[in-house]
Design a protein around this nucleic acid. Sequence first.
DNA 1: CAGTGAGCGAGCTTCCGCTTGACTT
Length: 777
Amino acid sequence: MQDNLVIVESPAKAKTIEKLLGKDYFVTSSYGHIRDLAKKGLGVDVNNNFKPEYIVSSDKRKLVDELKKLSKQAKTIWLASDEDREGEAIAWHLQNVLNLNDNNTKRITFHEITKDAIQNAIKNPRTVDLNLVNAQQARRILDRLVGFELSPVLWKKVKSSLSAGRVQSVAVRLVVEREREIMDFKSESTYKVAAIFISANKNEKFQLKATLTSDFKTEKEANDFLERCKDAIFTVENTDKKPSKKSPSAPFTTSTLQQEASRKFRFSVAQTMRIAQQLYERGLITYMRTDSTNLSTLALNTAKQTIKNLFGEKYIKTRQYKTKSKSAQEAHEAIRPTYLQNMEIEGSAQEKKLYNLIWKRTIASQMADAELEKTIININISNNKERFQATGEIITFDGFLKVYMESNDEDNENTETSGLLPALVAGQVIVRKEITATQRFSQHPPRYTEASLVKKLEELGIGRPSTYAPTISTIIAREYVSKEDRAGTERNYTKLVLKSNDIKSEKLTETVGVEKSKFFPSDIGIVVNDFLTENFPAILNYQFTAKIEEYFDKIADGKLDWTVMLNNFYKPFHEKVDDSLENSQTTNAERILGIDPKSGKQVLARIARFGPIVQIGENDDPEKKFSSLNKGQLIETLTLDEALKLFELPRTIGKYENMDVVASTGRFGPYVLHNSKFISMKKDVDDPYTITIERAIELIEEKRKKDTEKHIAKFDDIEVLNGFYGPYIAYGGKNYKIPKSQDPKMLTRDDCLALIEAQKNKEPKSKTKTRKTAIKK
DNA sequence: CAGTGAGCGAGCTTCCGCTTGACTT
């Protein structure tokens, strides 16, 4: 056993550091925090200066025993957890739980895993910084108090098992408020005018695209303008050339990586993190949970060399990026390839893609600015005060654009910029070839994607790199929000075209409102948000986290006592909790929609035990009827007509083989019911309100055919079936794989039994798993 | 899997941030 025991947070990091430190050091890891507030109850004694009750979590007990043993054998213990608030707390917990002595325990930190940095750290040890630890305790305890006092209020006033917290509740608020902005949004149309000009001289050939600098509100105005253009003379007023520059973006942090992977590859944030973790564990990239844009000197030098080799000296520009977020704790580097000279790696398609993206972003960040030349040509209209403008942009030096271009959230369809413009001179007359006025509609603010929500949270300083993905999972798991697609609707628009001396008006249609993987709030999400913003505005305030972070900073600087800070927060907060438990209304989002013309009874929408419903008849009406809302419908926006339509299902549409055929919508979408068999309707093809008996029979027959194909063979109690993932064997309620080498049609009973036996033996030992990720009931 | 929509009320639920596994379909 070595004399020196070094404890870091992550095992992958431990491995690299051990290599750098040599044989006198044994490096191991704590796997993050080793203990936490007690799970049962509050875990904090609010009447005794917020004394925390810390418990080593069950899945860490073995590890802690191991660390205890190792620390007893070592002469010196080096606590090398991260340099931030959480890392300091980990060191402190280790010291306490492992009963480490002050005289042989040393706290070291480094933000670069290089031999120099680590040896330097070893030379300059310190003791655990209790102020920083206290800032972490304050953070931890405040989050516990908020979460564990607010959630029970929701259980009582809204629905059991709900949750609230400093981070998740604000995330939900963002989604709900965006949806409300969209509900209130009134789309307005304008007429945008674009023209194509050609030369007045027949020997000179060019086409110049230009747009009018102002829009028209109505079709009449646009038409009048085109009328005037008929006789107008178009003259180049002036041309203007301006050089401009584009600079590369900073290297990746967790959130920018999530955003780019989402925009470029449509990865979910969890997916991105999973892939990045694999790259990290294989030693291919630096740590993937970071808010730092910092690059090590080693990385800067390798980048320089790599750029020089690939593109030449003039593409190099060494840059050090300042980390934007104030809360940045600079414990890590930016996310970058460990070996920048490797542009590509081996691995799965996804790993290759993500790695290459990280490589490009890192290399680009150390490359020269791109140089552009922007040309603007203003075109005067003889009988109009408006003017046309053509803009062109050419790249005079590509610089970093050679490897990387950041994607944009908004698809900016309106900005039309061409490349090189024809060389025109002021005073030159040009001729119109075509002028069009197209009706365009203003768009509602975009719904959040996973990545854009993360971006927004980061801007507000809410959440940390390690929690962005879990926060998204939580608000989905609680069913406050859902990630959905929407088909979009058709919209008519008008286009006026002036060609020669005719103005033609065309009626066109376009599809609008198509959504892919966007966040929509649920009814329960809306109710919970409204309740919380009404009763606990301070906590739901977007600035709340930023404000308390200032206090945590003061605690870390030793300028504020953490218990004083907590007391100042907790007293009014807890009073509000008590007051709310006592006095606030329980809420079920009830909304009266109107009167059912058939029965004359009241129609009402509300949240019931299993979700949102509409109800015809008062609560005390013994003949009241219910129906669930369809997917995508919200209580807040449901109309009386939509509500009544829900009661048209289930619908008997006819008979087949002497049995009723019923169309309806269930939990899994629209279906046809026949002979007590359910057959799903085809998405975007069938509609339960309009489906005919002929089409229903088609579906029934189709299903039957599929079912017969499903059964490949049957031997008494063993069946060979065709499943979603291919053929398999079903026996005793369990499924077994069929190796690719065997033809499922040729299997005998004995073959099957052999396969079953073979797979039974290597059945995995069942481990008890209890993690918060499995939140579903 | 394609329903229910209350009801006695017991007993449970819940936070945020550090870390990796071990589940399979």
